[in-house]
Lab assay of single mutants.
Amino acid sequence: QNEKLANELKSLLDELNVNELATGSLNTYYKRTIKISGQKAMYALKSKDFKKMSEAKYQLQKIYNEIDEA
């Protein structure tokens, strides 16, 4: 289960640069939040902690959705 979550989180991290570029014309909230979420996700992957990875995955998905809707 950890392996599956780690792969999903890696996949979301692969999209980080594209989504970060998409924040160029948006409010600074999005820029700041996506950077923080990305850092948390990288830390969670290194720690291999299921709870941290779950939270990081949720945060990344949430900010990606917010950027898409903005």
Results as ranks from 00 to 15, higher is better:
20 E>V: 15
42 M>T: 05
6 A>L: 08
66 E>H: 05
62 K>C: 10
25 S>P: 11
27 N>W: 05
17 N>F: 14
64 Y>C: 05
12 L>Y: 02
44 A>P: 01
39 Q>R: 13
19 N>R: 15
43 Y>A: 15
22 A>Y: 08
45 L>N: 00
23 T>F: 08
65 N>Q: 12
51 K>C: 12
1 Q>D: 13
10 K>G: 03
54 S>K: 12
68 D>W: 15
30 Y>A: 02
21 L>K: 10
11 S>F: 08
64 Y>G: 02
16 L>H: 02
38 G>C: 14
44 A>H: 01
63 I>S: 01
24 G>K: 14
26 L>Q: 04
50 F>W: 08
68 D>A: 15
52 K>M: 13
14 D>G: 08
5 L>E: 02
15 E>H: 12
37 S>Q: 14
45 L>K: 01
36 I>V: 09
43 Y>E: 15
43 Y>L: 14
62 K>F: 04
13 L>Y: 03
68 D>P: 03
37 S>G: 05
44 A>E: 02
45 L>Y: 07
34 I>V: 07
56 A>C: 03
53 M>Q: 00
29 Y>A: 04
70 A>I: 07
7 N>V: 09
59 Q>G: 06
22 A>K: 15
8 E>M: 05
15 E>N: 10
31 K>E: 04
20 E>D: 07
59 Q>H: 07
41 A>N: 01
15 E>G: 07
53 M>D: 00
5 L>Q: 02
40 K>P: 00
37 S>V: 15
60 L>N: 00
33 T>D: 03
52 K>W: 05
3 E>T: 08
42 M>I: 12
1 Q>K: 09
56 A>G: 02
36 I>F: 07
54 S>G: 05
48 K>C: 10
43 Y>V: 14
65 N>I: 08
4 K>T: 08
46 K>T: 07
4 K>E: 09
54 S>Q: 13
61 Q>F: 05
47 S>Y: 06
4 K>R: 11
67 I>T: 02
37 S>Y: 15
12 L>K: 00
51 K>P: 03
12 L>D: 00
30 Y>L: 09
40 K>F: 15
43 Y>K: 12
13 L>W: 03
66 E>G: 03
52 K>E: 12
12 L>M: 06
38 G>T: 12
4 K>N: 08
16 L>W: 08
27 N>C: 14
12 L>E: 01
50 F>L: 06
70 A>H: 05
68 D>H: 15
64 Y>A: 05
11 S>M: 13
56 A>T: 02
55 E>S: 06
44 A>W: 02
22 A>G: 05
54 S>M: 14
63 I>V: 05
49 D>S: 07
45 L>G: 01
40 K>H: 06
6 A>W: 15
27 N>K: 08
24 G>Y: 11
9 L>W: 00
7 N>P: 02
3 E>Q: 09
56 A>L: 04
55 E>N: 06
60 L>P: 01
57 K>G: 02
11 S>Y: 07
39 Q>K: 10
68 D>Q: 15
29 Y>I: 04
56 A>M: 04
70 A>T: 04
1 Q>P: 11
45 L>P: 01
63 I>D: 01
21 L>D: 06
34 I>F: 03
8 E>Y: 05
8 E>K: 04
64 Y>D: 00
39 Q>E: 10
30 Y>I: 05
40 K>E: 06
4 K>S: 08
6 A>E: 10
3 E>R: 08
16 L>C: 04
1 Q>R: 12
66 E>M: 12
67 I>N: 02
18 V>T: 10
42 M>L: 13
29 Y>F: 05
16 L>F: 11
69 E>V: 11
26 L>V: 03
12 L>H: 00
25 S>M: 11
56 A>V: 03
17 N>R: 14
39 Q>M: 13
5 L>M: 06
51 K>T: 10
